[in-house]
Simulated assay, not measured.
Amino acid sequence: MNPALRIPAEFVAPSVEDAHLPPLFTVGTFEVGKHSLLILLSVVLIAGFFMYVVRRRALVPSKGQYLGEMGYGFVRNHLGRDIIGEKEFRPYIPLLFTFFFFILVNNLFGSIPVLQLPTFSHPGTAYVFAAIAYFVWVFVGIKRHGFGGFFVKMTMPPDVPKVLYIVLIPLEFLSNMIIRPVTHALRVFATMFAGHMAIMVAAGFTAYLATGVGGALGIGGSVFGVILGLFIYFLEVLIQILQAYIFTLLFAVYVQGSLQEGH
Rank of each mutant, 00 (worst) to 15 (best):
N2L: 14
P3F: 08
P3T: 04
P3E: 11
R6I: 10
E10M: 12
V12L: 09
A13I: 00
A13F: 00
P14N: 00
S15P: 03
S15M: 00
V16R: 13
E17H: 07
D18F: 03
D18N: 08
A19N: 04
H20S: 12
P23F: 03
T26C: 09
G28I: 00
G28E: 01
T29P: 02
E31Q: 13
V32F: 04
K34G: 06
K34I: 02
H35A: 10
V44E: 05
F49G: 01
V53F: 13
V53K: 06
V53N: 08
R56K: 13
R56Y: 03
R57F: 04
R57L: 08
L59A: 14
L59Q: 12
V60T: 11
V60S: 06
P61Y: 00
K63Q: 07
K63P: 04
Q65N: 05
E69V: 01
Y72R: 10
R76T: 09
R76G: 11
N77L: 05
H78N: 11
H78M: 08
L79C: 11
R81Y: 04
R81E: 13
D82T: 02
E86Q: 12
K87G: 08
K87W: 04
K87P: 00
K87I: 05
E88T: 01
R90P: 01
P91I: 02
P91R: 10
Y92P: 02
L95C: 01
L95F: 06
L96D: 03
I103M: 02
L108P: 05
G110W: 06
I112G: 08
I112R: 07
L115N: 10
L117P: 08
T119A: 09
H122F: 15
H122K: 11
P123L: 07
G124W: 10
G124N: 09
G124F: 11
T125K: 08
A126L: 12
V128W: 09
F129N: 05
A130S: 14
A133N: 09
A133Q: 12
F135W: 10
V140Q: 15
I142C: 14
K143H: 14
R144K: 15
R144D: 07
H145F: 13
M154Y: 10
P158E: 09
V160A: 10
V163Y: 14
L164E: 15
I166C: 14
V167K: 15
I169G: 04
M177R: 08
I178G: 05
R180M: 14
V182N: 01
T183N: 08
T183A: 13
H184Q: 14
H184D: 09
H184A: 12
R187E: 07
T191H: 06
M192H: 06
M192W: 02
F193H: 14
A194L: 14
H196D: 15
A203K: 14
A203E: 15
T206H: 03
A207K: 02
A210Q: 04
A210L: 09
G212N: 03
G214Q: 09
L217E: 14
L217V: 13
L217Y: 05
I219C: 05
S222V: 03
S222I: 01
G225P: 00
I227G: 01
I227T: 06
G229E: 02
L230W: 03
L230F: 07
F231E: 10
Y233R: 04
Q240I: 02
I241M: 12
I241K: 10
L242E: 03
Q243F: 11
A244Q: 10
Y245V: 11
I246W: 06
L249G: 00
A252W: 00
S258N: 04
G262F: 03
